[in-house]
Computed example of a mutant assay.
Amino acid sequence: MTAANHPPVFSLQQGSLPLLISIPHVGTQIPADIAATMTPVAQRTDDCDWHLDRLYAFAARMGASILTPFNARYVIDLNRPPDGANLYPGQDTTGLLPVDTFEKEPLYLDGRLPDEAEVARRRDAYWRPYHDALTAELAELKARHGKVLLWEAHSIRSHVPRFFEGRLPDFNFGTSNGASAVAGLGEELAAIVERHGDYSAVANGRFKGGYITRQYGVPAEGVHAVQLELSQITYMQEQFPYAYDERLAVKVEPLLEELVAVALQRAKSA
């Protein structure tokens, strides 16, 4: 996975289905050399997509491939373009190398912001290996099955005023306005959630899919990509220490499994 003498930067569990679950913001580690330049708040990794590897444990039992990083998004954001372009022009967002938290707290000590050389170093050391693994696994699954579903698993606090007003819907599906997956899939998944009755849902609302969804979802070539930005209030404690709430999670897990299964079937039959 990595060059000799370098610690691994991701984990890939390969499965038997044409299904890859990517969880690019679940990592919590910050390498010591980077941590030395950062503020104490960075060590809390507040903006992690907490516990999604646990919440999506059913996917491994289904036979999905699962790709996760070890490092936090504060090291480098794996769901941003390598050039750092804003995916939502005109809206506030965090970049390829975030410099502040979602609450706009600084991540770096005075005078220690990463320069262009450091950006390039982290892109090569952390961003590229993850995307190389993602590209290779999608290619292998497509070669084996003909079609493949990429499910981008994300989560976020239900209230983040920096990015949206009020409370975020519970389930936020993104298919790049229909461009990254079979037509109508995002809306179909949102409708399933609404019929369930316990949660709110929207397709291609505030979150339309990040770089990974937009870059790799090419339905005409048999690769369908869906991003789910799940409100953390549905399965965990949203404030520090960000504990997993089994009482909540046990309700949302079966619905997640149903949604992934429906999306997979739609991708296979497209």
Rank of each mutant, 00 (worst) to 15 (best):
P106G: 06
R54F: 01
Y211V: 07
Y74Q: 13
T175E: 07
V99P: 00
I34G: 02
F70D: 00
Y74V: 15
A270P: 11
A270W: 14
T94V: 14
L259R: 03
L87D: 06
E194S: 10
A35D: 13
E105V: 02
T45A: 10
L134H: 02
V262Q: 09
L113G: 09
I23D: 04
S269R: 13
T101P: 08
Q215E: 07
D115S: 13
R195M: 06
S269W: 04
K104S: 15
L78V: 01
P106D: 05
I66G: 02
S200G: 14
L168P: 01
R247Q: 14
A201P: 02
G146L: 04
G210V: 15
F10A: 00
N79V: 12
L19E: 11
H145I: 14
E257I: 02
L55H: 10
P81C: 02
L87M: 15
Y235H: 04
S158A: 12
Q29L: 15
Q13K: 11
A203W: 00
P81R: 04
D46T: 11
D124H: 04
L17T: 11
P24S: 10
D46I: 07
E103S: 14
L67I: 00
Y211S: 07
L17H: 09
N5T: 12
H145V: 13
Q29R: 14
V41D: 07
E137W: 02
Q29E: 15
T39L: 05
L189A: 09
V182G: 01
L12T: 03
L264R: 11
G63M: 08
T2H: 06
I212N: 09
A249G: 09
P106Y: 03
F171I: 10
E116N: 14
A143C: 04
G111P: 10
D92V: 14
I233G: 05
C48M: 05
L264K: 06
R167E: 15
K142C: 08
D170W: 03
Y108P: 12
E118P: 00
P219A: 08
V26W: 01
V75D: 00
D124E: 15
L19K: 14
R54S: 03
E221T: 05
T28N: 08
I23S: 11
G95A: 13
S16T: 15
Y56L: 11
V99G: 03
